[in-house]
Amino acid sequence: MRALVVVLGLLLGLLVGASAVLLNPLAWLRGLPPLSGELAPFKAYRGEAYRGIDLRAGSLLRAGRQDPAVALNDPALRHVRIGIIVLPAGEGAPAALAVKVSAAAESNSLWRAQLGTNDYWNIYWPGGGSIFATGYSNFWTVTRDGFFATLGGDFSAAGAAGYPVSAPPTAGSAAGVTGAAGRYAGFTGEIRELLYPAAGEARGRDPNWAVAIKANPPPFTTR
C-alpha cells in the first residue's frame, strides 16, 4: 500500500511538473507576426524527401531513436535535417525548387520554452532567380499540444489550421531573406513557416508544411 502511494504521488508530481513546464507563458508571448496573405501567401508542401532528424520532440530532446533509413550518421550531422522540396505553382508564382537544412539550435532552453531548429533555405525559380532565407522554428507549442493530446485533449483544430512555428531568432542567430540571383538579386525580406502535424500523423507520414516568403527589392539610390 505504501509503495502504491509513493508511485502515485511520484507520477502525479511528474505529470503536474511537466504540465507546468510545458504551459510556460513565454510560449504564447514568442512568435513572429504573420505576413500579409495577399503579399506572401503560404505555399503548402509535403516534406518527405529528407535525411536526418524528424523534428519531433524526441529528436529535439535527444531522447528518441532516429530512423536508420534516414539518419545522417556522421558525428557532426547527428542533429541535422536536409531535404529537397518542390514548391508548387500557384497564387501568381511559378513552381520552385528548394533545399532546406535544419539544425537543432544549441541555444534551446526548456525554461525559456525554446525547442527548435535554425533553418536555412535556398529557393530557385527556373528562369527567374533565387533567394536564401534563414529563420528559427520553435516546436514548443506543437510539443505541448501533443503532450496534452496524449492525456485526452483535443487539438485537432489547431493542427488542421497549422502551427506558426517561425519565432524570433535566438541569441547569435539571424533571420530573413537574402536575394541571390536573377531578378531577386539584392532583395531582402521575411519568411514564415506553418506545420500541420495532424495531417501528417493521420496518414502516418511526415507532417505537411507551408512556407510564405515576402521579398522586397533593394531601395532605390540616386547618384
Partner: peptide, 21 residues
C-alpha cells in the same frame, strides 16, 4: 512523493542534455 516528482521535473528541465553539434 508528489514533491519528489516535481523536483525530478525541475532537475530534468535544468540539466537535460539538449543536442549540441
Amino acid at each position: 512523493s508528489f514533491l519528489a516528482g516535481l523536483l525530478v521535473v525541475v532537475l530534468a528541465t535544468t540539466f537535460w542534455p539538449l543536442p549540441t553539434h
